[in-house]
């Protein structure tokens, strides 16, 4: 016993070193499991508060740029809304539009999928207010809700990048919700505190996004290669598929993180094909500029739990 104490005393520094390193490595390994919650994260109230404060003065510098980008987003949404309205109006006049048709109503309105209870619009009553009311109802009944948030911390140059936003459980943000920005996919919520949330950026090596080629709807898996913050790679597209430089890549809607048809990026180069593989590796230029990201939307998919339960049940059988 005495020898044991002597041993511990003599090598206390080395033993303590080992203990602390084992603790650290334990944390690293645990954390590398995708989506595992951890106490150590920047959504912690104090850290979030500091990031928020530090962000306040930075805001003023970027104010003009932010205004411009919000303005152009508004303009784009307004154009989409007008287009959607006119299509809706025409369909209503033709008497062929039925609420509750589970397919996407209008291509440009893909984010707002109508799932209202079936009710044919009365063709005799087709004034603007009716359509506006119906529009509101579409939004209320839509299976995707959006929560606007401000990015208060962000990185793009690490092997695994994260963002912190200023909305948390109090505002309805929960784990595993998707995050999209003005120009497309940004990431997935990892940890949530009362007022803040941390986001796994698309620029994270264990992040996978189910993506499709707009031209032909072939679905592959998109991942970040770990170096350039403006590039990603689309895998699992079979070699017989025709892919061209400039093709648009959208979300497939298979995962419950993102709605269908959210922009991810464009094909930047001729697809690479390795010998002995039946699949292409396609280089994608990401549409989101992760260096200047300011405002994002948290995607709340109302039927996520239901979908997950059903899928798990099927898998277990």
């Amino acid at each position: 016993m005495r020898n044991l104490f002597l041993f511990i005393f003599k090598y206390h520094a080395f033993l303590l070193f080992l203990v602390l390193e084992i603790v650290s490595f334990g944390l690293i390994v645990r954390h590398n499991h995708f989506q595992r919650a951890s106490f150590i994260n920047s959504s912690q109230a104090f850290v979030g508060y500091l990031y928020n404060e530090a962000n306040e003065w930075k805001e003023y510098i970027d104010l003009k740029q932010v205004n411009d980008s919000l303005m152009s987003e508004n303009a784009r949404l307004m154009a989409e809304m007008e287009a959607a309205k006119s299509v809706l109006e025409r369909d209503v006049q033709d008497g062929k539009f039925v609420f509750g048709n589970d397919t996407t109503v209008i291509d440009t309105l893909a984010k707002v999928t109508a799932v209202a209870t079936p009710s044919v619009i009365d063709t005799t009553n087709t004034n603007d207010t009716n359509i506006a009311n119906k529009g509101e109802q579409i939004i209320a009944d839509s299976i995707f809700h959006f929560i606007g948030a401000k990015v208060i911390n962000n990185s793009t140059n690490r092997a695994n990048n994260f963002l912190t936003i200023n909305k948390g459980s109090r505002h309805g943000v929960a784990r595993e919700m998707g995050i999209i920005g003005q120009n497309g996919v940004v990431g997935v919520v990892k940890d949530v505190s009362e007022n803040f949330a941390t986001i796994i950026s698309l620029l994270h090596r264990s992040m996978r996004v189910s993506a499709k080629i707009k031209r032909n709807n072939f679905v592959g898996s998109l991942r970040w290669e770990g170096t350039r913050p403006d590039r990603a790679v689309l895998n699992d597209i079979p070699k017989h598929v025709h892919v061209e430089k400039g093709d648009t890549i959208l979300t497939s809607g298979y995962s419950s993180f993102f709605p269908q048809n959210v922009l991810i990026g464009v094909v930047i180069d001729e697809p690479r094909s390795d010998q002995g593989s039946n699949f292409y590796k396609i280089d994608i230029a990401l549409s989101t500029n992760f260096n200047s990201i300011q405002y994002v939307y948290v995607v709340d998919y109302i039927r996520k739990e239901e979908k997950k339960e059903l899928e798990e049940k099927t898998q277990n059988e």
Binding site: S24, F25, L27, I28, I40, N41
Partner: peptide, 16 residues
Amino acid sequence: DFFTNTPGLHAAASVL
């Protein structure tokens, strides 16, 4: 690590 969302990473390096 709290700030950078990297539990254990900076701790391991600075203990070293």
